[in-house]
């Protein structure tokens, strides 16, 4: 299938990026886009380069070729901290909570920015504590003492502190029990209603198809399939071909 053209109003558009780790060539020309407020799924087997795609968008891995645009502006090669301040939130697959910082301090890493009034900070905190009441209870506890599910919530809440226009969400349900998984699905829905775009990397195909508007499927460092989430179901041929075991 031919690579989809990024629409003019795409919030994030990635064109033909190639990324290497040392000598290994991981991404072989990935092209995709996410519209403002859109939830887009990115599927693929282990090791096909999904996380690397997110890292490249976030400025944590530098592509040797290709371009990343954010809100119409070329941002390829910008350091991650600038992208974060421009409104790109990142929730990595291993969560990467600051273990020795309290929950509150973890949130403050994104909240203490220039130009955020005390009132606005309080509103943002109230909002995430309403989404994740358990974080409010544990606000003075070191992040490393939280359970896996709580750490995942903290990782999402922390990204929300940046008031991002898009969140790059890497396998948020990995290793979580079913009740937590449905809670994460609800949060994705809530963020979507708030107008936050999400690029969702997941192994959980049903959840991805249900949460996303469009999906991309990757194989060997390339996007192989692209369609509306409603046009495909779990038993589809493409799913079986690229994701089946």
């Amino acid at each position: 299938m031919s690579a989809p053209q990024p629409s003019a109003e795409a919030l994030v558009s990635v064109s033909n990026i190639h990324t290497h780790y040392g000598k290994s060539h991981i991404l072989h020309g990935v092209t995709l886009h996410v519209g403002a407020g859109e939830v887009v799924g990115l599927l693929g087997r282990n090791g096909v380069g999904k996380s690397t795609t997110l890292k490249t968008i976030m400025g944590l891995a530098q592509p040797s070729q290709g371009e990343v645009k954010f809100a119409g502006r070329a941002v390829t090669g910008l350091p991650a901290h600038k992208l974060a301040r421009l409104g790109m939130g990142y929730v990595p697959e291993d969560r990467r909570i600051f273990r020795f910082l309290t929950v509150m301090e973890n949130l403050r890493t994104g909240l203490d920015r220039r130009g955020v009034t005390a009132q606005r900070k309080q509103e943002l905190l109230d909002k995430v504590f309403a989404y994740f009441p358990v974080l409010a209870e544990r606000r003075h506890q070191p992040g490393g003492t939280l359970s896996g599910g709580e750490q995942q919530m903290l990782a999402i809440a922390r990204a929300m502190m940046l008031e991002p226009r898009i969140i790059l969400l890497d396998e948020p349900t990995e290793g979580l029990m079913p009740r937590m998984v449905s809670q994460i699905a609800q949060i994705i829905g809530a963020l979507h209603r708030d107008g936050v775009a999400i690029l969702l990397v997941e192994q959980n195909v049903p959840l991805t198809l249900q949460a996303s508007e469009r999906i991309y499927i990757m194989e060997k460092g390339m996007v192989r399939h692209h369609c509306a989430a409603s046009d495909i179901n779990v038993n589809d041929e493409a799913i079986r071909q690229y994701l089946g075991v």
Partner: peptide
């Protein structure tokens, strides 16, 4: 907080805008 965050995880600190 920035210093402690960057001490624990430089990359994630950067991804949080630090």
């Amino acid at each position: 907080i920035w210093i402690r965050a960057a001490t624990q995880d430089r990359v994630m600190a950067q991804a949080m805008g630090i």
